[in-house]
């Protein structure tokens, strides 16, 4: 039954399921009482009936108070336990919600080890992660069901919370606050992996894109001309690829696009076909997304996709 990959989610789950069952029982009891009230005959002895009704209402109120109080207490302890995870030696990640994707920035005290990426978060298992949230446009909500509860991203307001994955896994995070047309297609991939693997991923992400300086093989020349398409066409107006002249930050950072599992904020798997479809006509996949359609010749498109696929 458990879907929790961290202690916090396990605590939430432990509170959530009994709450569901208790509320279901209460709902059924109320419906039975309602049906009884509608179907029963009027009593002859009004006074006796009044007394009996008062007794039932009193019992129901007492039961409600007891249940609410029990939940008040358990909620308090759960919230304390969730907030009480160890906060030493954490990874700090700033997550910004935008219509309709996630900007992810890893902080580090060494400036050159700061990392900007998008729509995919890697975290080390067993180490606390400090998430700092904000929004660039409207209210979003950051939700990784397997690790923690929902957290609203409020424009103009930074807030932070801690989470920790206790076992490895790949999860789908989701925007949990309606934020416009493509709210449902605003997801992110969360990868919880062992420390060594995380460090290897992090170091690889820090490196700049490599564009073959001289095209010797056919594959190299495709990548080279794909790079030229990227920096001379519309792509360069919104995206960054470190190591090239593309440095705009309106859209997601694409420096290591090919290493990501999904494209378009969890909308499609990262395959050659999906990528090409997305570049040519994003509006067909995610209507209203802020990426415009692109008019490329087949040769340009093939080269561009080869370049994007080389961004490992």
């Amino acid at each position: 039954m458990t879907d929790a990959f961290g202690r916090q989610a396990a605590l939430i789950e432990r509170l959530w399921w009994p709450t569901l069952w208790v509320l279901t029982a209460i709902y059924i009891a109320v419906m039975i009482a309602l049906a009884y009230a509608m179907l029963r005959r009027r009593h002859v002895d009004e006074v006796k009936s009044e007394v009996r009704t008062a007794r039932w209402v009193g019992a129901a109120i007492a039961g409600t108070v007891v249940i609410l109080f029990a939940y008040f207490i358990s909620d308090l302890f759960t919230a304390r336990a969730i907030a009480g995870i160890e906060r030493k030696d954490g990874v700090t990640i700033e997550v910004t919600g935008l219509q309709w994707w996630w900007r992810v920035e890893y902080s580090d005290s060494v400036p050159e080890r700061r990392l900007t990426t998008a729509n995919e978060i890697h975290i080390p298992v067993g180490r606390p992660v400090r998430i700092i949230t904000s929004s660039a446009d409207v209210i979003h909500s950051f939700w990784i069901r397997e690790l923690h509860g929902k957290r609203d991203l409020i424009p103009g307001d930074k807030s932070e919370f801690w989470l920790r994955a206790d076992s490895a896994g790949v999860f789908r995070g989701q925007c949990a606050e309606f934020c416009g047309l493509e709210h449902a297609k605003m997801a992110l991939v969360v990868v919880a992996e062992p420390e060594a693997q995380f460090q290897a991923w992090y170091d690889r992400q820090l490196s700049a894109a490599r564009v073959p300086p001289v095209a010797v093989t056919r594959a190299d020349s495709l990548i080279r001309s794909g790079h030229d398409v990227f920096v001379t066409k519309a792509c360069v107006m919104c995206h960054t690829i470190r190591g090239t002249t593309a440095g705009s930050s309106i859209g997601p950072d694409l420096t290591h696009l090919a290493s990501r599992r999904m494209i378009a904020a969890g909308t499609r798997t990262n395959t050659r076909g999906n990528l090409a479809g997305w570049v040519v006509d994003p509006q067909g996949i995610k209507p209203g997304a802020l990426m415009p359609p692109n008019n490329l010749t087949p040769a340009e498109l093939e080269a561009l996709i080869s370049f994007l696929e080389s961004l490992k």
Binding site: K233, A234, D281, Q283, G284, P287, G288, P292, P293, N294, N295
Partner: peptide, 10 residues
């Protein structure tokens, strides 16, 4: 009115 697929693109 919102037009998401205007053409021509470039």
């Amino acid at each position: 009115a919102r037009e998401y697929r205007p053409g021509p693109p470039t």
